[in-house]
């Protein structure tokens, strides 16, 4: 899609429909589509600085209890396995930022803006920001189907600046509002 906010409603509907088909509750579908909306809006507003003609790629992957690497064939992708979650990958060609600088802000500081990252981390079970090879950023969102469904859970945030990914529990605090 292009980085035009006009497409946000379509992206929300697409993600919500797929999540529903995978077995997520209505509430969880709303949460997942909200996270995607916030992630795309961040790319448009901060990554591309409101330019409406830049590329964004979004891919949606069902996950099953087998090793589920989107780059490899998996039986959950042909409907043969039981779904355990959904993975959404959003990529862009915007300026790269250090993934560890992408943090939610202090919520006690009530002011307009800067809530997107907090919302994404609250509603998804895994949030991974990475630099793409060469140009742009890649965000991978994962939500598990089942026990964490419908609840705001403690989010696992992976923040791999370079090399081996490392796991960090919910990073609150001041930082960029990407």
């Amino acid at each position: 899609m292009l980085s035009n906010p006009l497409y946000l409603c379509g992206a929300r509907e697409l993600v919500s429909s797929v999540a529903k088909r995978l077995g997520f509750s209505n509430e969880a579908c709303c949460q997942i589509s909200l996270a995607v909306d916030e992630a795309l809006a961040n790319v448009m507003r901060h990554g591309y600085k409101k330019a409406c003609d830049q590329p964004i790629w979004m891919s949606i992957w069902p996950c099953c209890d087998q090793a589920c690497d989107p780059a490899e064939a998996c039986s959950c992708q042909d409907g043969q396995a039981e779904y355990t979650g959904i993975r959404i990958v959003i990529e862009d060609e915007a300026d790269q930022v250090d993934p560890c600088e992408i943090c939610s802000r202090d919520l006690d500081d009530v002011r307009p803006g800067g809530l997107g990252v907090h919302i994404i981390k609250e509603v998804m079970d895994q949030v991974v920001y990475e630099k793409r090879e060469g140009v742009g950023m890649k965000l991978t969102l994962f939500k598990q189907l089942g026990i964490k469904d419908d609840t705001v859970s403690e989010t696992q945030v992976h923040c791999p600046p370079r090399g081996t990914p490392r796991s960090v529990k919910d990073q609150s605090g001041k930082g960029s509002n990407a």
Binding site: L8, L34, D37, E38, A41, V110, R111, P112, G113, L115, G116, I119
Partner: peptide, 10 residues
Amino acid sequence: DSSGVATLVE
């Protein structure tokens, strides 16, 4: 979404 919330905060 958060842009609407930000509008109301403002």
